[in-house]
Simulated assay, not measured.
Amino acid sequence: MNGSTRSVSPAVDIRLKRGPSGLGFNIVGGMDQQYVVNDNGIYVCKIKENGAAALDGRLEEGDKILINGNKLEDQTHGAAVDLFRTAGEDILLCIQKKHPPHRNGPSSPEGGGDSSVPRLGLLVGVLGAAALLALLYVRFQPQLRRHF
C-alpha cells in the first residue's frame, strides 16, 4: 500500500501571534526531505513549551500545515522555514489535523517511536528461548530415558 488510501482529516484554521521566541513550533518535511512517504508536505514536529503555539493549544505535533499565506506543498524545507520566519507578527495557518501516516523518519526530533522494534526484540527472545530448550532437550534426552 502506498498510503494513497489514507483518510483525510478536515482542515482547521489557526491564527497565531508571534511571541518573543517566535511561533513556538518546529517543522519537518518538504520536497527535499519527505517526512511522510509520497508527501512533500510540511508537518509540525515539536511544540515549544510556553511558545505561541503551546499557549494557543490547538496546534499539535503531527499536524500538516497546508497554507501559511502561501501553499506549502512542493516547497523545500528551507523555503518553508524562510516563509515562517518572514511571515510577520500575526499568522493564519490552515492545518490538517494529524492522523497515523506512513512516516519515513522518527515521529519526534529525539527519534524512536517505531513500535515494530520492541516486537522484533520479543520475537528474537522467544525464538532464542525455544532454541535453548530444544538444545537442552536433545543434550539431556539420553539421561531422561535411564531407568533405575
Rank of each mutant, 00 (worst) to 15 (best):
H77A: 10
L59I: 14
G62N: 11
L83P: 13
Q34Y: 11
N68T: 15
Q33I: 10
L93E: 10
G78K: 11
L55A: 01
D74C: 15
N50V: 11
G57C: 04
E60Y: 11
L92K: 12
I65K: 00
Q75A: 09
Y43V: 05
E73Y: 02
N38L: 08
L72N: 04
K48A: 03
K97Y: 09
L92G: 07
G30H: 02
G88M: 06
F84T: 04
N50Y: 08
G88W: 11
I67T: 06
H77I: 06
Q33E: 14
T76V: 05
G30F: 01
E61Y: 01
Q75F: 09
T76G: 07
L92I: 13
T86Q: 13
E89F: 11
D56N: 08
K48Y: 04
V44H: 00
V37E: 07
Q33S: 12
L92H: 03
G51M: 14
K46L: 14
D56Y: 00
G41E: 06
L72Y: 02
C94D: 05
V44S: 02
T76H: 02
L55T: 15
D32A: 04
A52T: 04
Q96P: 08
E73L: 07
E49S: 08
M31S: 12
L55Y: 09
K97G: 07
H77M: 07
G41K: 00
D39V: 09
Q75T: 11
N50F: 10
T86I: 12
G69F: 05
A53N: 11
G57P: 05
A52N: 09
